[in-house]
Amino acid sequence: MKKIILVALLCFLFANLFAQANSDSLAYQLQRKKINSMLAERSLKFGQYDKSLSEHSGIFGLQTKKDIRRSNDILMDIVKTDNDIYKQLKILLEYRTFQQSQVQDKSKETETNALGFMYTIKQLRDQVDQLKKLGDKNAELQNKASRNFIIIVIILLMIILMLLRNQIRAKEDKQR
């Protein structure tokens, strides 16, 4: 019965840990999707930058200041997007580290609980063994006491019978 309770408790703890891991991995997946969308946005911006470099609206097919400024603006926008991506990647990595430390903490806690339960079960088994030994000892003492009581009763009956016999002989001797 105790084993069943222990197994049920461990199953409950692992199910709880698994449910929490699923919710954590959902947030992790959302963060990854956000980073992937930012990377797709950066790719589009880089395509615009590449296109702006090939535009030459000046005389004799040269780039004008306006073309260069537009390319620089797009490039600055790419740099800002890259910085945002780095920030989000850092958050993702910190989140992953946090998840791993949480899993390790839960694992240690579960292991500690399991060891505590096993120690408690061992103590209870030892107590049961001690109580069995004490019960056996008490039963043996009670058996001895019962034997002694029966022996005393038999001895008393024999004494009473001897006394009655002696009285009967004494009456017979008086009557004769």
Rank of each mutant, 00 (worst) to 15 (best):
M158R: 06
L75N: 09
F60D: 03
E55V: 15
Y86N: 06
Q29D: 12
K34I: 06
S23I: 09
I91R: 10
I91N: 13
N113V: 01
L26M: 11
G58H: 01
K90H: 08
G116H: 03
A27K: 13
D82E: 14
D136R: 13
S37F: 04
I91F: 14
D84T: 03
E94C: 08
I74H: 04
V128G: 03
I78V: 14
Q48Y: 04
D50E: 08
T110F: 01
Q48G: 01
K33E: 14
N148H: 04
M118R: 06
E109M: 05
K108G: 00
L131N: 08
T110Y: 01
K80E: 14
A21Q: 14
A114P: 01
D77G: 11
N83H: 06
S43G: 11
S107I: 00
D129S: 11
R69D: 15
G61Q: 04
L157W: 02
I35Y: 00
S43F: 12
R70P: 02
I68F: 05
M158Q: 09
S37W: 02
L157C: 11
I152W: 03
S37Y: 03
K144R: 13
D67Q: 05
F46Q: 13
A139V: 07
L134P: 02
I150W: 05
Q100P: 00
A19S: 12
I74F: 05
I150R: 12
L134K: 08
L92F: 14
G135E: 11
D77E: 13
Q99L: 11
F117I: 15
K133Y: 14
L89Y: 04
A145N: 09
D73S: 14
K137R: 07
G61Y: 00
S146M: 08
A139E: 09
H56W: 00
Q29M: 14
Q48T: 02
E41P: 01
E140M: 10
Y28T: 07
Q100S: 10
A21D: 14
M38T: 00
F46V: 10
S25Y: 07
I155C: 15
N148W: 04
D50W: 01
R147M: 06
Q142V: 03
I59N: 02
Q102Y: 07
G135D: 09
T81L: 15
G116F: 02
E41A: 14
V153G: 05
K90I: 08
I151N: 11
S23Y: 05
S71D: 04
E109N: 07
T120M: 15
F98N: 13
N113G: 00
D73Q: 10
D126C: 11
A27H: 10
Q88R: 08
G116L: 03
V103S: 14
K133H: 13
D73C: 05
A145M: 14
S25M: 12
L93S: 12
Y49T: 06
I151Y: 05
I74D: 02
A114S: 09
A114T: 09
G135I: 05
E111F: 02
Q99S: 10
N113L: 11
K108P: 01
L44H: 05
F117V: 12
G61C: 04
D129L: 13
A139H: 07
E55C: 08
L141F: 09
E111I: 01
V103A: 15
R96F: 07
S23W: 05
K65Q: 12
R70T: 12
K87F: 09
Q99Y: 10
S37R: 10
K80M: 13
N113R: 00
E140G: 08
